[in-house]
């Protein structure tokens, strides 16, 4: 690693060289790296916001309404933190937002399934009511037939 260094530099100058390289690289790369991270976080936040809109549209029964409000407030918080360049906090909030979005998604799915269950239960009840009614009708028809048989043997 050190072989390609200039021979004229003495061993004393090697740390200075690395220090120079490090400081120079940092000075050159740091603004670029920060700019990429900010853009990335912004894209994530915007993607989350778009997904929140989709979730709100899917939540026809308003089962996750409170969670969506909370999610939006957190995304706003993340947006604010991003503006303050508190990227670690933004990431932490975005993680929570992703988990919250997943929670909302599962809640909506569960609610929809429960709604389907309720509908199916209602349909089943309707069929059972029809069965009960049909049994009653059969009994009454049998009685009617019996009485008619007495009249018309």
């Amino acid at each position: 690693m050190i072989r390609w260094l200039p021979r004229r530099l003495g061993w004393i100058r090697v740390p200075s060289f690395f220090l120079f390289i490090t400081l120079g690289g940092s000075a050159a790369w740091s603004p670029l790296a920060l700019a990429d991270e900010e853009d990335d976080l912004q894209r994530q936040i915007e993607a989350q916001k778009a997904s929140v809109a989709d979730l709100a549209r899917l939540d026809t029964q308003k089962a996750g309404a409170e969670d969506i409000v909370r999610l939006r407030s957190w995304l706003d918080e993340a947006w604010g933190l991003r503006a303050k360049h508190e990227y670690d906090s933004v990431r932490e909030v975005l993680d929570r937002c992703m988990a919250q979005a997943e929670l909302i998604r599962q809640t909506i799915t569960a609610t929809n399934l429960k709604t389907q269950v309720a509908q199916k239960e209602a349909q089943l009840k309707q069929v059972r009511d029809q069965i009960a009614q049909a049994k009653k009708d059969i009994e009454s028809t049998k009685i009617q037939i019996s009485s008619l048989e007495r009249v018309t043997p």
């Binding site: 929570r96 988990a99 919250q100 997943e102 929670l103 599962q106 809640t107 799915t109 569960a110 399934l113 429960k114």
Partner: peptide, 12 residues
């Protein structure tokens, strides 16, 4: 959030 998600999955 995770526990609620787990409960939502259970409900599903």
């Amino acid at each position: 959030i995770r526990l609620k998600t787990a409960l939502a999955l259970l409900e599903q």
